[in-house]
Design a protein around this nucleic acid. Sequence first.
DNA 1: AACTTTTTCGACTATTAGTCGATTTTTTGA
DNA 2: TCAAAAAATCGACTAATAGTCGAAAAAGTT
Lengths: 202, 202
Amino acid sequence: MKKGEKRKQELLKIAYKMFLSQGYENTSVDSIIEEAGIAKGTYYYYFESKEQMLEAVIDMMIESEVETAAQIIESDIPVPQKIVAVISSVKPAEAEQPIQDALMQPENVLMHVKVRKKLIEVVVPLLSEVVKEGVSKGIFACDNIPERVRILLIISNDTFNDRTFTENDIAVFIDMTEKLLGADKGTMSFIYDLIDKSEMEV
Amino acid sequence: MKKGEKRKQELLKIAYKMFLSQGYENTSVDSIIEEAGIAKGTYYYYFESKEQMLEAVIDMMIESEVETAAQIIESDIPVPQKIVAVISSVKPAEAEQPIQDALMQPENVLMHVKVRKKLIEVVVPLLSEVVKEGVSKGIFACDNIPERVRILLIISNDTFNDRTFTENDIAVFIDMTEKLLGADKGTMSFIYDLIDKSEMEV
DNA sequence: AACTTTTTCGACTATTAGTCGATTTTTTGA
DNA sequence: TCAAAAAATCGACTAATAGTCGAAAAAGTT
């Protein structure tokens, strides 16, 4: 009842690395068990299927990202900055490994879609609270907050995570965010300074 | 040089149906050739790989949708209605088969993502022209049109194609569209009447 | 020590995408 | 018209895959 959990974590870590470096489809169960030094039967003692293991790996990834997001929310920075910080934290970006690159690879569509879906599911309620705080402070003015927050996340993900972007994309993103949340013009323009210009298309 | 093209089209049609009804991953090459009554070698005479065939099937799907979109654009309806019509035409929706349902199935992520990506690539320029027309007529007022159009497509796709939606989603979509394009409040509220309420979540 | 439960093993199966050389059918041009 | 060239078809074969299963070893329990 104890050793088992450890082995499971160990397998998840190995799979996590291999999925990211080679893609989910290109990582065979055989190669995972070889890397782990266990037999086929052992693998299937811990995981129902390869896909179920992928779910578990994703849950693991999400968990740590949500922790970061929660910390940011509890911190004491201005609401607009807080929102942007949470949105950024939700993309692996500069973090540990080239996770972002890995997720961009076409052989990782499945993983990519699943991560995004779960992340949005879990971050929308968190971020909605922050926006609500902004509304009560008079920084924002809008209704249907969760629906708006979702749009924010979808677009930021599409613009900044899934592809290369231009200055125009940033300008439109800022404009859209302000209008979507009912903020004064200029409220979100600090975003421009945060962007890593090296990631930008010329 | 003639018979070949016909066979190719025939195979594409068969694959199209099978991919949609069973999902891409669940459709084996063996089952396709059985359905078509040909040998393995013949299949690979026409297609490099199963995935390359998927691309071809998608191109086929896109092509017909783009034709429809182009017709709408040439038609003589008001600009705001035109935009919404194009966006709707871009989702298979009520069309022929339960394509939409098929693309929603988790076993079709790959196909789904590829269709969306290609569709956006091809529709953004078309729709941008329409918006430009709207700007010159004073209905809209905005810059960076292609970037804004992309957002419109991404969000409409996420909201109306990928999941069930609520009244709030519609309200936010209308509000966002108006603000994104710089239209007067109410310009896009006709959208509400177009929505098939039966598709809505309760 | 005798037992039960948890964990591990690896040979085995069934299915898959893709290869290849041989063969048949169709086209072409002299 | 007919033979050579090109296009199209065939199906047995390979290599890799995810997943199964019953037996055995290890760890816990009494």
